[in-house]
């Protein structure tokens, strides 16, 4: 077997509108790149097995599980994390709705759910119940039982329509 050459490579991305870069080992997962190298710890590592969706971020307009992407694969990309949702100290309507409707308890899954909700409402501004369920099927919450999450998403959709 050839001995692998683990030489570091430069990964450049725009995170929440800001150009960021770091030299990392190729095996660095996108979620570790964000948390350990860019100090953006809002994105959580849950199951680390492509199941729970706590690590969900938006990459080039689409949600991905950042535990299942090597950082170099995101090179040149545009990333939104939970830190990018609030603007000028004011929560995004999706965040407000989750707070208002108790769409979270421990908060571990919340960053992922917020970004999945962003993507869902971008595609379906007035989502049906089925679209809501399917839209967040890749996000696992072990506290709320989802009913309050659904409520939050419905409220966020209504609020965003008003604006």
């Amino acid at each position: 077997m050839n001995m692998p050459d683990a030489k570091k490579i430069l990964v450049r991305v725009r995170v929440n509108g800001v150009a960021r870069e770091a030299e990392v080992e190729p095996r660095t997962l996108l979620v570790e790149f964000l948390r350990e190298h860019l100090n953006l710890t809002g994105t959580h590592i849950g199951c680390d097995t492509t199941y729970c969706g706590a690590c969900t971020v938006i990459l080039n307009g689409r949600t991905v599980k950042s535990c299942t992407l090597f950082a170099p694969m995101a090179d040149g990309g545009e990333i939104t994390t939970v830190e990018g949702l609030a603007k000028e100290g004011k929560l995004h309507p999706v965040q407000e709705a989750f707070a208002e409707c108790h769409g979270l308890q421990c908060g571990y899954c919340t960053p992922g759910l917020l970004l999945s909700t962003m993507q869902l409402l971008k595609k379906y501004p007035k989502p049906t119940e089925a679209q809501i369920r399917k839209g967040i099927a890749g996000n696992t919450c072990r506290c709320t039982g989802y009913q309050n999450v659904f409520k939050s998403i419905r409220m966020a959709a209504a609020e965003m329509e008003k604006r």
Partner: peptide
Amino acid sequence: IADVQVRNQ
């Protein structure tokens, strides 16, 4: 296939 995030990738 799987969920939104996996289908995106």
